[in-house]
Design a protein around this nucleic acid. Sequence first.
DNA 1: CTGTTAGCGCATTCAG
DNA 2: CTGAATGCGCTAACAG
Lengths: 328, 328
Amino acid sequence: MADVARAAGVSVATVSKVVNGRYGVSPATHDKVLGVIADLGYEASLGARSLRSLRTNVIGVLVAEFEPFSTELLKGVSAAIGETRYELIAHSGRHHGDQVGWERRSLARLGGSVIDGAIVVTPTVVDARDGGIPVVAVDPHTGPSDVPTVDADNLGGAVTATEHLLALGHRRVAFLGGRTDLESARLREKGFREAMRRAGVPVDESLVVVGGYRAESAEAPARALLSRAERPTAVFAANDLSAIRTMDVARSLGLDVPGDLSVVGFDNVPESALSTPALTTIAQPLQEIGATALRILVSLLDGEGSSPGHARLPTTMVERASCAPPPA
Amino acid sequence: MADVARAAGVSVATVSKVVNGRYGVSPATHDKVLGVIADLGYEASLGARSLRSLRTNVIGVLVAEFEPFSTELLKGVSAAIGETRYELIAHSGRHHGDQVGWERRSLARLGGSVIDGAIVVTPTVVDARDGGIPVVAVDPHTGPSDVPTVDADNLGGAVTATEHLLALGHRRVAFLGGRTDLESARLREKGFREAMRRAGVPVDESLVVVGGYRAESAEAPARALLSRAERPTAVFAANDLSAIRTMDVARSLGLDVPGDLSVVGFDNVPESALSTPALTTIAQPLQEIGATALRILVSLLDGEGSSPGHARLPTTMVERASCAPPPA
DNA sequence: CTGTTAGCGCATTCAG
DNA sequence: CTGAATGCGCTAACAG
C-alpha cells in the first residue's frame, strides 16, 4: 500500500479510503489511485486488514475435514454467496484424532480477525460467544443451543429407511450408528427404533452398534455384525460412507448385496451412486442446507434482527440397487 | 494473549515464546502458561500472527468457485495433508464474471500474509512471484510457465473418448469444448482431432463449439448443436458438467440418450454417475491430483530443493450408459 | 478534501 | 530466563 501511495503521490490513508470506498476523496485523486492500483496489481492483505478493521467481508466455513458431506455443503454455500458481497474461506485445522474441540480452535483462530461470521459443520460444542462472531451450525451436537442451526429431518428419514427394509420383509435389521456426540446420529437411531416399534419388531440390541460416521471407524463394527452366526439380513447405516464400507465388508465376506444383505445409507452424497451396487439411501438436500445456512448467517451479519433460529429441511428416499427381500 | 499473560503472571512475550516453542523459557513457566492456555481456550489469531511472522503453517487452495471439480481436488488435498504440520484454507473470492484475474487477486490477498504457499486451481495467469510465495498450479493456462504444475493426460484421454465413439460406428461426432484459455481444453480438442484424423473421419468444423466448462455456458451451444437439421449422432463434451447439461438439452428436445445421441464426458466427477443415463466419461484421478499438488508444494515449502516441475497423471475410460451405436 | 497519528494482536530483537 | 520496546500493513479517528 505504501508503494501505491508513493506512486500516486498521496498518503497511505488516502489509498485506504479509496480502497474502502470512503467518502471524502476528490474524484481526480480517486481515479488516479485506482489507476495505480490496477497498474501495480495491488490487493489489500487480508491479514493486516482483518487485524484493524471490524469487517472483512469474508465468511468462514469451518469443517473438521474435507469429505463428501462437507464439500457438498460447500457447493451449496458457494452457489448462494454469488449475490452477496462476501467471499468464502473454508478452513480445516490440524486435529490429531481429537474429534472434539476443533471447532472452538478454528473459531478462535479465525473469528474476530479473519472472518466476519462462520458456518460450522457438525460441531460438538458451539458457543455463540466463541470468537465473538455470528455463527450458524449445521448438523450440530445434541441438545438445544443458542446458535441458529440448520439440519435435515433426520428422524423422519430414519423412519422411512427402516420402514423400507421392513416392508421388504426384513426382521433382523441392524443399525450401524454414527458419532454418538451428534444430534443427527441420535435422531437416526431414534427413528430406527420408532419404526421397529411401530412395526412390532423387537430390536435386537446386539445389532445396534456405533460406526462413527467414518469409513475407517465403521469397518470393524460392520465386520463384527456380519460375522455373527445369526447375522442380520439388512443394515441401516447412519451415513453413506459407513454404508458403502459395510458393502465392501460384505463382499469381502463373500456375501452378496442385495441378495444376502440389504443396505440403506443416509445423506445421498454423490459417492453413494458410484458404489457397487449403487446405494439406496435417504437424501438430505445438502447443497440447500449449505445455502440456507449462508442466508441465515448473512441476515445475522447484516443485522436484520430476525433470527430464524432453526431451519429443518426434508429428507427423501432414493431407491437404488442395494436392497431386496431377505434370503428365503 | 494479554489475558493469558495476566492469568499466568507473565508477559505476552513469554506467552508467545511458549506458543511457538522457542527456547529460553523455564519448564515451570512453560507448563504454567500451557495450563492457562488450555483453561482459557486461547488460540493465536491467524490474522495477527501472519502479519508479523513469516510462517503461518497454512496452505491455501485457491479456486474460482466450489464446484465438483475443485471440491474433488480438495478432498485429495485434505486427505494428504494429514501427516504434515500444515492446516488448510480454501478460498474463493468474489468474481463479478471476470474469469481471469481472480487467481492473482486471491494470491495477493492471502499470499505473503495468511498462507505460506498455494495450490491454484485452473488459473489463467500465474506468475511464480505473485504474492511472493511458492505456488503449484493444477490444470493451468496454456503454455509453459515457471510454476510447478499437476495435470492429467488430457490428450490421451480425449483420444480414448473419441475412439470409443468411432468404434461404436459414429461418424458425425461433435466436440463441445471447454474454456479456451485453459491448456486442458486445448489438449482435449487436439485429442479429438487427432483421433478423428487417425480414423480417417473428417471433422465437420460446424460441430466444434465452445462450451466453457460450465453447465450454464454449455447449454446454448449444446442446444444449437442438437437443433441442427443434420445433427450429430454423438457428442464428446470437454467436461462432465457440459456433458450432463447436453443430455438434459437432448431430453428437452425429445432425443433419447443413448438411442438417438451418444455422449461422453471428461473428469469423472461423482455427479457423472448420478445423471440419467449415467455418463460414460474419461476419469481423471482428481483426488490424487490434489494430493500430488500438495506433496509438491510441501516439498517446495520445506525447501527440499528438488522441484519436480511437472506431474502428469493417467486418465482412464469409465463406461456407463450414455453411449450406443448411432441410430440406423 | 488530505495527511498525521495511533493502535489492532502478535513475534521478535535486545536489555535486564 | 524474562520483560519492555518496536513494527508487520492496514483502518479509524482527528487535525490541518
